[in-house]
Design a protein around this nucleic acid. Sequence first.
DNA 1: CGCCTATTTGAAAACCGTCAAAGTATGTGG
DNA 2: CCACATACTTTGACGGTTTTCAAATAGGCG
Lengths: 226, 226
Amino acid sequence: MAETAREEVLKQSLIFSSLNDRELAELTRFTIERHFKPEEFIFWEGDTADYFYIIIEGRIKVIKYSSSGKGFIIAFFGVGEMFGEVAVFEDKSYPASAQTVVDTRILGIKKEHFLSFLGNHPPVALSIISVLGGRLRDAQSRLKDMVGERVEQRLARTMLMLASKMGPTLPFTRQELADMSGTTTESAIRVTSRLKERGIIKTVRGKITILDETKLTLLSEGPPLI
Amino acid sequence: MAETAREEVLKQSLIFSSLNDRELAELTRFTIERHFKPEEFIFWEGDTADYFYIIIEGRIKVIKYSSSGKGFIIAFFGVGEMFGEVAVFEDKSYPASAQTVVDTRILGIKKEHFLSFLGNHPPVALSIISVLGGRLRDAQSRLKDMVGERVEQRLARTMLMLASKMGPTLPFTRQELADMSGTTTESAIRVTSRLKERGIIKTVRGKITILDETKLTLLSEGPPLI
DNA sequence: CGCCTATTTGAAAACCGTCAAAGTATGTGG
DNA sequence: CCACATACTTTGACGGTTTTCAAATAGGCG
C-alpha cells in the first residue's frame, strides 16, 4: 500500500515518467520515506549530501543565508519535484538549506544507489539534464533580474515568475516575496500596496492574486509607477 | 590534421574525457568548426537553438540584456568548455547571447545529433549532469551574493569567484567587472581604487591582480572598508 | 602624434533599508 | 464564545549607499 503510493508518485514525477513498472519497483526499493512538520529543516547548507529527495506530499523551500544572517529563497518545490540533487551529482555538501512549508513527506534515495541507477537508465539521465537545464535557465534569468533593477521591478518579476509556474494566485506572505526578491518586508509591502491601489493585484493575508498580468509585465520592464 | 586537432580538444574537455578514440571519431564527424573575431556575436538571446558548442581556442562571454539595455555577464568560458547547452537540452531558444572576447574557434554539434549521441553514451550524460550541477550551484550562489549585499562585497565576491577559476590576475576592465556584479562602472572604480590604496589589489589598464586574497575574502563577508 | 577607450573624480539626487510603532487577521485555550 | 497570543500587514521618518550626470585625465595603438 505504502509502496504502491511511492511508485505512483515516482511515476508521476517528471524525471521518472520514462520508467516501466519493473524499473519503478526496482527504484522504489532504494527509497526511504521521511516525514516533516511545517517549518522543519530537512537539511542545512554544508551538511554532507548523502541523499537526493523527491516530494510525495507538501511543499518545501530552498534557502541560502548570507553572512549577515539574512535568508534568500532560491526556490519552492512541490509534489513530484526533486531537490538536493545538485550536491549529490557533484560530490559536495548541500549548497543550501531545505525547509518545509507545510506537513511534508519525502522520498530519499542514497547518492550511490541513484548514480548507479542513472548509469543504467539513460532516459532518466536525459530527464535530469532537462530539469537541471531548466533550473539553470531560471537561475540565470533571475540573476539578471535581481541586479541593476529597482525593487519594484524585482518584485514584479518575482511575482510573474511564480505566476507562470503556479497560476495567478500566489500563496506567499510579503516577507517570503521579499526574501525571494532580495529586499525587505517593508519595501515589499510598500510596493504591493501601490499595486493594489492600481488594481493590478489583490491581496489577502498570506496570498497575492495577480489581476492584470499585462500591466505587471509592463511595470517589470518599464518605468516606475508614479 | 584539422580532424585530429578537433578530437584532441574534445578528448581534453571535461565532458568527453570518458570516450575512447572510436567514439571520439564518431562524435567528431558531427561537428562543424566556426571562427570568430574579437567581440563578434556567436548567437543572440532568442535565436533558435540548433547547435551546442565547445570552445577550441579563445574565450567567450555569455550575456543577458535587461530591458534598459544594460548587459549582465552571466559567465566567461574558455578552451574545452561548453556553452549554449541549456537551450539545446530544453528545446527552446537561447536564453542569453554569446560574444567572443578574443579570436575564437568553436566546434558546433547539431542538437539532434548530440541528443542521440548522449542517449547512447551514459557516462557523457553523467558528465553533463555534473557540469550543469556545478553551474547551477554557481548561479544560485551568485544569486545570493548579488542581493542584500553592498556593492563592495558584491565586487569582492565576483573577483574571488573569478580568481578561483582563472588565477589571481583577472583580465577584465572595471566595466566588465561592474557588469558581472550588477553595478555601475563608476562604483566599480571607486571600490577598486580603495582596494588598491589598501594594497589588496593591483591594477593595470584592463587587468586586476589580487595581492591579498585573505583580506579580500574578509571584506567579502565582513564590514566595509572604512 | 592623435584617437579611442579606460580610468578617475566630484556633486547632487534617487532609492532603499532601518527603526519604531501600531493596526489587523488567525488561531488557541479557557 | 471570548480573550489573548502570534504573526502578518501597514505607515512614517531618517540616514546611508549607490546611481546618475558631467567633466577631466591618462594609457595604448596605429
